[in-house]
Structures are given as C-alpha cells and as structure tokens.
Design a protein around this nucleic acid. Structure first.
Lengths: 220, 220
DNA sequence: TACATATGTATCTAAATTGTATCAATTTTA
DNA sequence: TAAAATTGATACAATTTAGATACATATGTA
C-alpha cells in the first residue's frame, strides 16, 4: 500500500485528490500549508509527495529541496500556471513530474503510477555498507558472500532497509511482516532481530529503540 | 547472447566493464566518446547501452535522447556524481536505470539483468550454461544433445529461464503454467521441478526459495 | 486392446523454519 | 539505588514445507 502526501492549500482540491486516490487504494495524508508539510515530512515516510507550487509561507520549490535533502521520496508538482518556465524549474530541482491545474484525475493517477514504477525499478538491489540485498531474488550478500536468510528474516530485513533511519514500532513491524495474525506480547520479534544481527554481524547497526521498536541506522 | 554498448571515456573503466561483462557471456563494444557512440548506434543493434554522462563533445543526455529517437534500446546511466538531480534528469529522459561510480561490478550486473528482464528481450533461443532452449521449436539441448521434455515441463522451464535470478512464487508459477485451474495445495509443482532437475541435471541451478517458490539461478 | 507417455494424487520422510519457555542482562522509573 | 519493565540469549519443541517414491488417471497411439 503506497502512502502519498498531498500538499495543497486549496482544501477543495486536496480533498478531491484524496478521495480519488484512496478509492484507488492509496493511503493519503493532506497538508494544507508548507509548515504542516515540513512537519509531516520530517516525521513520517511517504512513497510519493504531490506538491502544489503556490503555497502560503513556504513555497513548493523550497519544500521540494527540503524533501530531497531528507530522503529519496519522489515528488510531482501541481501548479495553476501552465508555464514552461515553472516546469523546467521544478524538474531541475528534482521533481519527477509535473501536472498543471486543471487536470484530469486520470492523468494524475497515470503520472503517479509512472513515477512510482520508475522508482521501484531502482530498488531491486539495496546496498547498506557491505551488505547487498537483492529484493527480487531474495538473496543477501555480505562482503560478496551469500548469507542465507529465512523468509521471515528476509522480510524483516527489507522492511528495516526500506525504512532506514526511521524507528519502527514493534506493532508496525508485526503488522507488515507477520500480518497481525500473531500474538503481540511474545519474544518472537526480538528473536528474529537477534538472528538478523547475528547473521549480518549487525550488532550495532540494528538499533533497539527502547519501548518503541527497532531501527536500521545508516549514517553517511 | 545479449549485445551491450559501453559508452565511457575513461578507458580503464570501460575496459574493466567489458572484461567483466564478457566473462558473464555478454558481447560488448566500447565507444570512448560521443561521436563514436553515435556512429555505432546508427549502424548496429544493441540490447542495452551503458552510458556515462560526462563525455567529451556530446554528453550522455544528448546521446540518450538520440538513442531513444532511433530505437527502443534500454539504457543505464553511469555517472561519477551521486547527485539526485542527475538521477532524476536521466530517468526523465528515458534512462531505465542509473548507477553511480564507484560501483560494485555485481550491482552493475544485477541492474543490467533487471533492465533486460524488464525489456524481456524475447530471444528465440536462450542459453543457460550448456543448456540451449529454443522457444519457437520447443526443443531443449544439453551439451548439444537433445533432451525430451513434456509440454508442462517445457513451459515451466521457459518461465524459469525468462525470469532467471528472480524468485517466483508458487502461486505465480501455477498461474502462468497451469492457468490457475489446478488445486493450489498439492505437490504437483514440486514434482515437475523435480523432473526438470533430473532431466537437465540442474540439481542446484533450480533453487528452492523456501516458503516462496523456485528460482533459476544464473550467476557469473 | 495393449501400450506408452504425460500428468496429477497420496503418502511418508527429512529438513528447515518459527515460536515458546525460561532466565539473564539492560534500561527506565520511582 | 532498588524495583519494575523491557529486551537479549539460549535451548528446545511444534509446525510448516519440500523431496522422494509409488501409484492412479487420463490421453493418445500402434
């Protein structure tokens, strides 16, 4: 399930987009001004950001730069002005696409899907330190040597990697890896973390966030 | 046999890539500047182009546009700069993937294979080790000697080959080979895998991905 | 009909994965 | 600092899954 942040000051429009996207199975959050958007971006993880250029206080360009500093989250610009200048400026700053108001909802969906598809391409292989994770072949190598992980271990690793530097709640991890069909108050998750740490020799890299859950730390 | 064009002005690097790729069974040609590359692209056919962005005379972006005008050949960008901007620009222009110098050769190979898989270069004849699979005549040879496969076995083999190094879910295999009209919880698939392994002497090459399904492994 | 081939079922066995129980270590909190 | 809460470590048991084998049912062929 992809999570999309909609940054748009016109509530009529943001609501419309939200409804349409949710009908198509996306999970949406709305920020009606730049500050709220900043706050969301700092504290949550999105798969894509829809970004209006004309915003009160902080404008879309600034916001985009900020997003790109923090993460690799793709962004699509929305603007009222159908000006080529804006288009160029947006794309140069790192926007992945651009759509002008008024737009057909179908076109927006198509663009969102194109961008998400494009981003997922590059994600078949993830590299963290000397560990290479191949998501499609479900194999893991450390320093070139293959490490054998069990399915649950692999799924857990992928979740951690895809949310690196982001503390994940035990609850969230259970939901994503086990699918909430398991009792919550057991030592199962800890055990799997333990096994991952051992196999990858990631004693310190997988951090325990006391009373919260776990996090994969990947500083530059 | 896939043909790859390497466009890279640093001869040390282009040579290195060439050697590694040829060791893995790709046929390679090298162009050390944009003009030579143009010339090659006009006159020959490639399955994939590796494209350095920083080139003398004609740069990688221009070259990519030119390639995409002429053909549907997929392209992967190589660049020294690990800048998000470049990444976006490249992908927007139609690059299929992106890799930053310095890179692990293994990662480059994986990305090349991912792109080729995506393009599904529908080669009529596929070669895996000493096994030659002719998809149109539906015949299989191992070390030049014909192996007789049943229809289901052949379909299964083709599916595995066309998705090599890609873990296929049991469910997916059932869907593609049997067309979901078969009970899911049986040992049928396992049995067919077993028969394929025996006939092709591919005990280790067809890997069991525990709790997931099967994968044809074809590295190096 | 008898036979060969292809394909699926049933069943048992071996192996791998996953979870439970328990206690030790660590961190927080009072 | 002591008690409480939380997480780490270890051993083991239960469960799940895939491999192997024998056999059954088609389906077409001589």
């Amino acid at each position: 399930m992809n999570k999309i942040l909609i940054v748009e000051d016109e509530i009529a429009i943001s609501d419309l987009i939200k409804i349409e996207l949710e009908a198509r199975g996306y999970k949406c959050e709305v920020a009606n001004d730049g500050e709220t958007a900043c706050d969301f971006i700092e504290n949550k993880r999105y798969d894509l950001v829809l970004l209006d250029i004309m915003l009160p206080k902080i404008d879309g360009y600034e916001l985009l730069e900020y997003i790109k500093q923090l993460s690799e989250t793709p962004a699509i610009f929305i603007t009222a002005k159908n000006q080529t200048k804006d288009k160029i400026k947006g794309l140069n700053l790192g926007a992945d696409d651009y759509i002008a108001k008024p737009f057909e909802m179908g076109e927006l969906i198509a663009r969102i899907e194109a961008v998400l598809r494009r981003y997922n391409k590059g994600c078949e292989i993830q590299q963290i330190d000397d560990v290479e994770i191949n998501i499609v072949s479900r194999t893991v190598k450390k320093a070139g040597k293959e490490i054998s992980l069990t399915p649950k271990e692999f799924d857990l690793l992928v979740l951690l990697v895809q949310n690196k530097n982001f503390a994940l709640y035990r609850e969230t991890i259970f939901e994503k890896v086990w699918g909430e069909d398991l009792e919550f108050e057991t030592r199962t998750l800890d055990l799997h973390i333990q096994r991952l740490r051992k196999k990858l020799q990631w004693k310190d890299k997988i951090k325990t966030v006391y009373k919260i859950g776990y996090m994969l730390e990947d500083k530059i």
